[in-house]
Structures are given as structure tokens and as C-alpha cells.
Design a protein around this nucleic acid. Sequence first.
DNA 1: ATTGGCGATGTCGATCTTGATCATCAGCGA
DNA 2: TCGCTGATGATCAAGATCGACATCGCCAAT
Lengths: 91, 91
Amino acid sequence: MIKIDIANSLMKVHPCSRATALQVVDLLTERLKDALLNGHRIEIRGFGVFEPRPRKRGMGRNIKTGASVQIPKGKSIRFKPGKDLREIEVA
Amino acid sequence: MIKIDIANSLMKVHPCSRATALQVVDLLTERLKDALLNGHRIEIRGFGVFEPRPRKRGMGRNIKTGASVQIPKGKSIRFKPGKDLREIEVA
DNA sequence: ATTGGCGATGTCGATCTTGATCATCAGCGA
DNA sequence: TCGCTGATGATCAAGATCGACATCGCCAAT
């Protein structure tokens, strides 16, 4: 599923053109990104929680060189599935 | 940031009542949930990718008993931050 | 204001992450 | 609708992090 599919789903329940639906989806993602970049946690009950987290681990590995690669970065976004998402069984 | 904030952001760029904005946000999350539950991967460039993944690890831990707890479930949702989300520096 | 999902705790193993590169597909212009 | 741009995926390796259970409190949602 890609952005277009989401827009189509939105159109089914919200009377608007595909372009508008795309705009809405894009906007939402933009807002979420912005909020996350600002360090804000996004909590939506029944769906999940997006949380910016500081990362402590500081070492990776380079395939070619095989040398230990320092990981200077220290942040990442974690998405924690909500109750509804945990209902996933062995499909 | 919670659902209401997202709805407000939507209202700013999309002329509609708060109730409608809430409905849109709720709908989107519903669609995403449904897609994920159906095992579909949601890929949005510049934002991130939601991917249902089978979980192989089969052991947890009970605080009280401290005994190894079998994890019967075998799925979880992983959110992979896109390029824009990786721009997060040590805020 | 009420309901109830969600957070944190604690342990121990599996999972995930970073880094670079080529191929493929998402996003979007014409 | 067709095609281009370029972001994403997989991989090797080592080390750090997540996960789940069970419970109380807090805050999101109604």
C-alpha cells in the first residue's frame, strides 16, 4: 500500500478529488514529521505511538571494509503499535 | 501531540469543521490499521514505511516469577523512518 | 468527568541498528 | 499515462535495544 491507496481510501468516505485526498495525506505526514522532528511524541489511542528516542549504541559494520563504523548519530523514531495493531495473529 | 492536534493542523490547510478533521484523521488511522492487519506494507516516501513482520523470538520474562515466558504471538509492526525522519540530530 | 489504553519496571534472548552500493519502485512532471 | 529522479531494500558484523508478562497510575478519548 502506498500513498495513492491511502488517498483512495480517504476519498471513499470523504467526498473530494484525488488531488485533494493526496494533499490531505501529504499534509498529515508533513505534520507528523514536523512534530517528530520537534521531539514531540505522537500518541493515538488504538493505533500506536510515534516516539523520538535517543540512541546510545555507537557502532556498526561496513560490508566492504569490514571495519567497525562509528555511529555518530544518536536519534531515531520508534513506532509502538497500539492495542489494535497487536491483534495481529499469524496471518 | 495527540489526535486533536493533528486534526487542528488539518483544519488549518483544509477548510472543514473540527469534527470532520477528527473523522479524517480517525479514518486514516483506521485504513492504516486495516492495511497493516492485512499484512500489507505501507510505504510513503519521505516519511517512512510501516511493515508487518513475523516475530521469531519466542521468549519473554515475567517480572514476578522471573521465569521464561513463551511468546505465542509471532507478529509485530515495524515503522522504518524515511529519509526526512532520519534528519533528526541530537536535539 | 469517566473509561480504559498506555507507560514503566525487570530479565534474557532475539532483533535491530548503522554504513555503503546497485537495483527497483514510489513520487511526480510532462 | 509514460517516464525520470532518487529514495528505499538487502547485506555483513558487532553491539545495543526491544519484547513480553503483570499491575497501578496517567493521560488520551468520548
